[in-house]
């Protein structure tokens, strides 16, 4: 067993050649959740972009935030679409809204029983899932109900 929510062998995250999301992935390695905040108008922005869509400032900082949110929507996939998921069975993906940070949303898995009842609006908090043996290592952000 991997100790991860989903089996090994799924695609691993990369910030890509442009490096836009690198501060996020560097942050999760340190168990810190960081998103963009515009130094021009002060608004939160997620996912990562080069410009603030409100004031068009290019001066965006990466700020650490509290991983607390509520379930905005969810799904429980049963049909495996990747070989790493063959025979694994259902799992839960959640879309989490962060009311303290401009209602930005993040996608992750909901830890615990994959057959649990999921309630839209339920409070959740972030849990870091390090993949230390991956090359290069990375850390996912998962969610659990509180």
């Amino acid at each position: 067993m991997s100790g991860f929510y989903l089996p090994n062998g799924l695609p691993t995250p990369s910030s890509g050649p442009d490096g836009l999301s690198q501060p996020y992935w560097d942050g999760t390695r340190e168990k810190k959740l960081r998103i963009q905040k515009c130094n021009g108008c002060g608004s939160w922005q997620w996912g990562p972009e080069w410009i603030c869509h409100r004031c068009h400032s290019f001066d965006l900082s990466w700020q650490e935030i509290q991983g607390k949110g509520r379930i905005y929507s969810y799904q429980r996939p049963h049909h495996p679409v990747h070989t790493a998921l063959n025979g694994h069975g259902p799992y839960i993906a959640v879309l989490v809204e962060l009311p303290d940070y401009g209602n930005i949303r993040m996608v992750g898995n909901l830890l615990g029983d994959p057959l649990q009842t999921v309630t839209i609006g339920a409070a959740v908090e972030a849990v870091f899932e390090p993949h230390d043996d991956a090359k290069p290592p990375y850390t996912l952000v998962q969610w659990k109900t509180v």
Partner: peptide, 16 residues
């Protein structure tokens, strides 16, 4: 094996 951009925030969670 590795995904970037939007996919990096979705594929590792089985949202593909």
């Amino acid at each position: 094996a590795a995904v970037m951009g939007d996919d990096a925030f979705l594929f590792p969670y089985g949202v593909m």
